[in-house]
Design a protein around this nucleic acid. Structure first.
Lengths: 356, 356
DNA sequence: CGTCACCGTCTTAACGTTACACAGCTAGGG
DNA sequence: CCCTAGCTGTGTAACGTTAAGACGGTGACG
């Protein structure tokens, strides 16, 4: 069932059928109706997408490379928000959205080479991810969220180090024995407890920058980063954070009195552990999160607000819209420190310090 | 940059380049290396997906039609599990995964007509969704999850009515004033409180079947369905369920003593409301959920276990694998009633009654 | 009445790939 | 020494669509 078939049935040329489907006003109303009727009769449901994309040179689809198994991507509220932003731009531009999971296997590069997409967005990539090379080679417009920066690829993300410095200051000021709840530092995803790890060791640039910021904040507060326990978790998961925090609170000789967590999910886990052990917040334990989710607001959590939804939109626009400025650090999105009751200093409720 | 270009550079024919990329062992090792080197040198990153799909007649991509705005799809733990199952089959078959959001607008049909996919899976479709017609017209292998059943489309899902009857019995037995927390009954998504609504009025077949099952269970327990309050919520959202349940518990003259909820999320909201009002579970209030999520297990919630992940896999296989039996009610997946402490009857902890 | 502009439709020529059939060439068996 | 089988490489012919430009017809205007 092809255009020539429909054309024959309708008594017009194939070109007229094409116009009837793609440029309705270029063809006379009566002819158009005749064509569409003929198509209906023959059960022709529209131009073959492959042929169209071959001829037009574009596919009408945006690809998102997820540096995670797909299941994790769907579970993670941050990925969720980000993809929501991407998808809203897709709907606006009438584009499809193709998900490209990265499994860590050799088929990853092939999947990216063969994907029928016009542009690519990368979410959660490790610094040395071979996928980055595949994307570069593909030569399509592409943008990385969060990092790593790479010649030839756009980059969108907040200044994680500065934000971590700010929220770290909120957590650590007045603390004597702070701790950190961290995202994984490598693709191996081993949960473990480190002390003052070198931030550079983290292979995800977001994790690295946040560790750097926390270390900055610790120094500024007169604390020795090298002694600060950093719980590296395997996943951005509340239950895992709760269990790990509980062990940390119970085991430490010096009672931990401040926790800076890299996400609200992790921070809420820490709060739950504190609650279970009857530690008062923030008197005995100050806690900060990251992302300013609704749950964080409800829990009165001091946190960093960054609209991942907005960043998803930015990423999508930067690769889709021809006029859009290439994504660079310059047009980095805004972040804010949202001060709430989970830390000391008691500024007015819901104080928002604006920053870059 | 096309195959002929690479062929010229490598001193072979275009056909050999094609073989080198697609059937590596069909071409001598030395030649293959020469071709890949030439491609590398010219920056050719592999066959053009559009051209390939035109020529081969398939795209190597599976489409999932989400009956929701994409953001909701990502938020919803059930959708998440289901998509996880679908995607695992995609990875196994080296297929891409394209998401097709349904916004309710007129562009929905166009998106489906133009999607470059080999097969379609429908998630959360209303009975009269015009999208179903677009899918049928497209003529691709397609399967609907949960319903509605439609000539020409596969169908996968559990027997929701029977399962609702079972879990409804667990909730309502011994109760005098039960209530139901329901999914939306129409696309309008209005939250509201109904009394014993006609199950047929629900326009999503899953919702309809579950209401029927609950009504069956009510009758069996000697209760009058027409008097039972049914809270129809706008979203599958814990916070919304908590607020609505709290109002219900406070307002009712006859104190509500049992709640059957259509998801664990909703049930957990109900439990939170009960906790806040100091109602003991199950003595003052029996609660049941649906899905058997980890959170439900942790909360000791009586619920229906159905593996949505497994159902996602089933859906994907039924449209992808040529040998697979066409999806029908016959090969419906299994469900189980998991009896826990949130209902009366105190069977052994974690009692699992196997069904169908 | 001739000219011009415009409109709707048609003809042509790719877009880049790959299934298929076939042609050399080598090796081994009769 | 011929014949067959297996392996490697090549030519041909689509796959279904659409951009660009050609073409004939109609109506307006001087």
């Amino acid at each position: 069932m092809t255009m020539p078939d429909v054309a024959r049935e309708a008594g017009v040329s194939a070109m007229t059928v094409s116009y009837a489907f793609n440029h309705p006003q270029r063809v006379a109303e009566a002819t158009r109706r005749r064509v569409l009727d003929a198509a209906e009769r023959l059960g022709y449901s529209g131009p073959h997408p492959g042929a169209r994309s071959l001829r037009r040179g574009r596919t009408g689809t945006l690809g998102v490379v997820l540096g995670e198994h797909l299941t994790y991507a769907f579970d993670d509220p941050q990925a969720t928000q980000f993809l929501g932003g991407v998808s809203s731009v897709c709907v606006e531009h009438e584009l499809g959205l193709t998900l490209l999971p990265v499994t860590g296997g050799p088929s990853d590069a092939a999947r990216i080479r063969e994907a029928a997409v016009d542009a690519l967005i990368l979410w959660t990539s490790a610094d040395d991810d071979p996928v980055l090379d595949a994307v570069l080679q593909r030569g399509l417009p592409a943008v990385v969220h969060g990092g790593p920066a790479r010649e030839g690829l756009g980059l969108i993300g907040i200044d994680d180090r500065a934000a971590a410095r700010a929220v770290g200051a909120a957590a650590f000021t007045g603390a004597r024995a702070p701790a950190v709840l961290s995202f994984p530092t490598g693709r191996d995803r081993q949960p473990r407890l480190l002390r003052g790890p070198a931030p550079d060791a983290a292979r995800f640039s977001v994790t690295r920058h946040r560790l750097q910021g926390y270390a900055d904040a610790a120094s500024a507060a007169g604390l020795d980063w090298a002694r600060i326990p950093v719980l590296v978790l395997a996943r951005n998961d509340r239950a895992e954070a709760e269990a790990a925090t509980q062990r940390l609170l119970q085991d430490s000789e010096t009672p931990v009195d401040a926790i800076a967590a890299m996400s609200d999910e992790l921070a809420l886990g820490a709060l739950a552990a504190a609650h279970r052990l009857d530690r008062s917040i923030p008197a005995q334990l100050a806690v900060t999160g990251w992302d300013d989710t609704p749950a964080a607001a409800a829990a009165g959590l001091t946190t960093i607000a960054q609209s991942l939804r907005h960043q998803g939109e930015l990423c999508a626009r930067s690769v889709i819209e021809p006029g859009a400025a290439p994504a660079q650090a310059q047009n980095a999105p805004v972040w804010q420190l949202v001060h709430r009751a989970s830390t000391h200093g008691s500024p007015p409720a819901d104080d928002v310090s604006r920053a870059h």
